[in-house]
Design a protein around this nucleic acid. Structure first.
Length: 156
DNA sequence: GAACCAGGTCCCG
DNA sequence: CGGGACCTGGTTC
């Protein structure tokens, strides 16, 4: 298993990958010793693009999914653009009738943070949760995307 | 507004 | 293998 670390405005992320696929991109408190390989490099480039406001879909690397259903939900999720949000039920509907509860489960176990933007999925009556480092981080990411959109609109 | 149920998966006994 | 928990939401009291 190879690892590498990447600094975002929201904190450090750890990129984990083996030779065949990316196993996870998760928030960590601080970077540890890196052992990059080709896939972690590619993931890092994707993250850089993301921070520059470029949509990265489809992902430029293979990655691990918990199940077929979670793949469907996450692929659907990846079609959203910056600053755009959906509710759990709406996302479930788009992914061909997956129920909200299941969508929540998929989000909770999403291992590819940011690139599969599970932070863009909100509850109907509020923010919803975020296991990738607390609701504060979710809010911060959404705020950042919103300001990014505003900036793009201005420079347009 | 609170309580209860529903689909999908994981975790624990 | 059975039961319960979970980043929800709709219905019902």
């Amino acid at each position: 298993m190879n690892r590498d670390y990447f600094k975002t405005p929201f904190g450090w992320v750890e990129i984990r990958a083996d030779a065949r696929r990316v196993e996870g991109i998760l928030f960590v408190p601080e970077p540890l010793e890196a052992s990059a390989n080709e896939l972690t490099e590619r993931a890092k480039e994707a993250l850089e693009a993301f921070l520059m406001g470029k949509a990265v879909h489809p992902l430029p690397f293979p990655c691990a999914f918990a199940s077929e259903l979670s793949r469907r939900v996450l692929e659907e999720l990846a079609k959203l653009s910056f600053g755009e949000v959906v509710t759990y039920s709406e996302l479930g509907r788009r992914a061909l009738g997956v129920h909200q509860r299941a969508v929540a489960r998929v989000m909770a176990s999403n291992k590819i943070v940011l690139l599969y933007p599970c932070h863009r999925v909100v509850a109907q009556n509020g923010l919803g949760g975020y296991s990738g480092g607390g609701v504060e981080r979710k809010k911060a990411i959404l705020e950042w995307e919103k300001s990014l959109c505003a900036r793009e609109a201005k420079t347009e």
